[in-house]
Computed example of a mutant assay.
Amino acid sequence: MKPNLKACGQAMVTAMVNAVLAVALMLLVEFAISGTFQVPEPYIWAGVLIWAVIFAAQFLRQRHLCQACEKDTQSPVTESARTASKS
């Protein structure tokens, strides 16, 4: 359960930062074109969609990384034994 919560938190932060940056870029382009800082509704929906896609992908990636890291720390094999077995 803990790796899922950690993965969820990290994915949430990553997705939120990326979505905010994407909406900010859209608003900057809108300002450059029209000269006003109006926030059209499609931009908000685009930001939500960007957040959802990035969150889903990052959650799966982070969960895999957390589980792999947890397996490595629980493994009784030490680093010296790993390097000895490789040579």
Rank of each mutant, 00 (worst) to 15 (best):
V29K: 15
V29W: 15
P76Y: 12
S80I: 15
N4I: 06
E70T: 08
V20R: 04
A11D: 00
K86H: 07
K6V: 13
Q58Y: 04
P40I: 10
V39C: 03
A84K: 11
V23N: 00
T14I: 12
L28M: 11
S75W: 09
F55C: 04
Q67R: 04
L21C: 11
V77W: 07
I33Y: 10
T73D: 09
G9C: 11
T78Q: 07
C8E: 02
D72P: 05
Q38V: 06
V13K: 14
T78W: 09
V77Y: 09
F31V: 03
A46D: 01
W45R: 12
L21K: 14
S85G: 05
Q38P: 03
R61N: 08
A84V: 09
L21N: 07
M1D: 14
C8K: 06
A84D: 07
M12V: 07
K86E: 11
R61E: 00
E41C: 07
A84C: 06
D72F: 10
A84T: 13
K6G: 04
A57D: 05
L25E: 08
V53F: 14
S85C: 02
N4T: 06
E70Y: 02
P76A: 10
R82F: 15
A7C: 07
L49V: 06
F37P: 05
P3S: 05
Q58S: 14
A7Q: 08
V48I: 10
A22S: 06
S34M: 07
N18Q: 11
P42H: 13
V23H: 00
A19D: 00
Q67C: 04
A81I: 15
P42I: 14
S85H: 06
S34A: 08
M1I: 15
F59H: 10
N4W: 04
A19R: 01
L21W: 15
N18R: 13
D72R: 05
C8W: 00
Y43A: 06
S85P: 01
T36I: 02
V77D: 02
L5R: 15
E79G: 07
L25S: 10
T83I: 13
L49C: 10
